[in-house]
Amino acid sequence: MFHYLGNPNRARVLPGFGITMGYTVLYLSVIVLLPLSALLLKSAGLGWERLWQTISHPRVLASFKLTFGAATIAATINALFGLIVAWTLTRYKFPGKRLMDAMIDLPFAMPTAVSGIALTAVYAPRGWIGQYLEPLGLKVAYTPLGITLALVFIGLPFVVRTLQPALADLDQEIEEAAASLGASRLQTFWRVIVPTILPALLTGFALALARAIGEYGSVIFISSNLPMKTEIASLLIISKLDQYDVAGATAIAAAMLAISFGMLLAINAVQHFVARRAEGGA
């Protein structure tokens, strides 16, 4: 399958291609490809009818609606606040900036279970912040709002980290050119800066969305996990497994993968279009 291309001498000078490539492919196959293909084959083996039967169950549909809905809202919030945070970190100087920059990756490094109980401690009705929200009629923990909050938490680094290099790479002259032509700061932002960073923003959005759809650990603690109300798809897979309904779990997992794959494909298409525009045709 793998052939040397280009300068064959280059391949011959350095040793170890055969063994490293062999090991790479073997390890990849055993750890990743074999188990993933099991999911594909098993779900295909269920048959269309059985698959549909499982997925069309109201409880499953409700969990999908919640999972994909909350993930989309969370990714949108992240796109907005991620842009503000990334802008602040690349453009301004203020005390504590370095610490703030370093802490952006916390949701990525922190075990999700820890994030889950920590967010619950803060946003539960008697929690640090929850106690002030409760009288306002704002119930966060144990509601879809809490689930969304957890998904915002875990998706944050993805938007910020994809936007930071894009903002840092913005050509200074472009903004000066817009200003010299009489554009206001706001006009420059919307007409010049946003179109340029839109591809990166969409990438960050897609990454945050993908992560949010699959998230489990941080959500189950802050959610009340009630069927039809606050039960996410990942949790439904686990409860199917607990009932030894492997086929049902497989069907839900396959549908989840298919939907998120479709969503990401759509975002990718939009992003491709936007990137082409941002790069100017070509």
Partner: peptide, 8 residues
């Protein structure tokens, strides 16, 4: 998704 990673 993590749960799916376990499931496979």
């Amino acid at each position: 998704a993590p749960v799916v990673s376990g499931l496979i």
